[in-house]
């Protein structure tokens, strides 16, 4: 897959970091403003997809990247399950228990474990979407060659 023209490349260079940052904002403020892990993860994945589409598949080694995203995805899902399991042993013994102190409603550091769940679900969603996209790109390269 070849890259696009100079114009797209330059705009991508300027914008991809900001798109990534916006995704992180959506994830970390998921318990205060609209958004959360799902939306933010998809935006983060969108930033990377934009980068790959603009610069072509030569810019990264696809195989290595796919392995990395797979590992990230699995690790994030595992951490979510471990966090949920921790609720079974701490405080009230309930799966998915919110065991951390909840703080003031409306502050950034509040709502106990929910922001942490958000972060890891966001990681999982981003890595899963990237894995799907990279698998398609790799398949296309292999068919073409």
């Amino acid at each position: 897959m070849n890259g696009m023209t100079q114009i797209v490349k330059k705009v991508t260079q300027l914008m991809s970091g900001l798109i990534f940052m916006y995704g992180l904002y959506i994830i970390t403020h998921g318990h205060l403003t609209p958004g959360g892990g799902f939306a933010g993860g998809a935006i983060v994945a969108g930033g990377f997809i934009l980068l790959i589409l603009a610069f072509g598949s030569k810019v990264i080694s696809l195989r290595k990247e796919e392995t990395q995203t797979s590992i990230t995805e699995s690790a994030a899902l595992l951490i979510v399950i471990l966090l949920a399991l921790a609720g079974l042993f701490l405080g009230v013994h309930v799966f998915f228990n919110n065991y951390l102190p909840q703080g003031q409603v409306g502050e950034l550091i509040s709502a106990g474990v929910i922001p942490i769940y958000n972060i890891f679900i966001g990681m999982e969603v981003a890595a899963a979407l990237l894995t799907i996209f990279l698998a398609l790109v790799i398949y296309k390269e292999e068919v073409a060659s």
Partner: peptide, 24 residues
Amino acid sequence: VLTAIVIGLATTALLLAIAIRIYK
């Protein structure tokens, strides 16, 4: 619905993968 949307994306991707495989 929030969970269902992401599941919809996952099923669509899977269906597309199967379709492109059959095309090959």
